[in-house]
Simulated assay, not measured.
Amino acid sequence: MIRDAGPGDLPAIGALWNAMIRDTTATFTTQEKTPDDLAALLAARPGSMLVAEADGIAGFVTWGPFRGGPGYAHTAEHTIITARPGVAAPLMRAALARAHQQGLHRMVAAISGENARAIAFHTRMGFAKTGHLPQVGRKQGRWLDLILMTAACKAP
């Protein structure tokens, strides 16, 4: 079941997100999300954080401003993290549909060049590669590329 995230979901969301931050190069940040960080994010993004529920939280997706300024008002960047197979595609479809309802036009995925699974997933979901920024991130003692992909926000 895909539904809006609520305050009670934040510990599970934090556990998924912080494991990715600690253990992978899928995200370039090294600062784990605190409970206060997550509560502030949920408050700042009403209707823009969804969870997949299947015997607990199996994944989440959230989106927010891509860049500042009015020229980017109809573009969002998302984060999607899942713990079980089969939940990423329904979450992404729901996010694109909700973003469309919110008046957004394009969704951006900023993906580590080392994350081949995420690149393949986004390609299957209709995202197209629109940029490759070499060695713009650094984590775990090495330089990392950033792949940008975009898709139209659309009704299901």
Rank of each mutant, 00 (worst) to 15 (best):
R3K: 09
R3A: 10
R3L: 12
A5F: 11
G6P: 10
G6W: 07
G8K: 10
D9P: 03
L10F: 00
L10W: 00
A15S: 15
A15M: 13
N18V: 05
A19G: 15
I21V: 15
R22K: 04
D23F: 02
T25I: 13
T25H: 08
T25Y: 08
T27V: 14
F28C: 12
T29D: 07
T29G: 03
T30Y: 14
T30M: 10
Q31E: 10
Q31A: 13
E32Q: 15
E32S: 09
K33R: 14
K33V: 07
P35N: 02
P35T: 01
D36M: 02
L38V: 01
A39C: 11
A40T: 09
A40S: 13
L42N: 06
A43W: 09
A43G: 09
A44Y: 08
P46K: 04
P46C: 07
S48A: 15
S48H: 12
M49D: 00
L50M: 10
L50I: 05
V51S: 02
E53Q: 02
E53K: 00
A54W: 02
A54P: 03
A54F: 00
A54D: 15
D55P: 06
G56E: 06
G56M: 09
I57K: 07
G59S: 03
F60W: 09
F60N: 00
V61H: 13
T62C: 09
T62Q: 07
P65W: 02
F66Y: 15
R67L: 14
G68V: 12
G68S: 11
G68Q: 10
G69N: 13
G69W: 10
P70W: 15
Y72R: 03
A73F: 12
A76E: 07
H78W: 10
I81M: 08
A83V: 03
A83C: 07
A83T: 04
R84F: 08
P85T: 09
V87N: 04
A88C: 08
A89T: 14
A89Q: 11
M92F: 03
M92D: 10
R93F: 11
A94Y: 14
L96G: 00
A97K: 04
A99G: 15
A99Y: 13
Q101E: 15
R106E: 11
R106A: 12
R106D: 10
V108E: 03
A109F: 03
A110H: 05
E114P: 00
A116I: 02
R117S: 09
A118P: 01
I119F: 01
I119C: 09
I119G: 01
I119D: 01
F121K: 00
H122T: 01
R124E: 04
R124I: 02
K129M: 06
H132F: 13
H132L: 13
Q135W: 07
V136A: 04
K139F: 07
R142F: 01
L144E: 01
L144R: 01
L146D: 05
I147Q: 05
I147Y: 02
L148A: 10
L148N: 08
L148P: 04
M149R: 03
M149F: 06
M149G: 00
A151W: 08
K154T: 14
P156C: 06
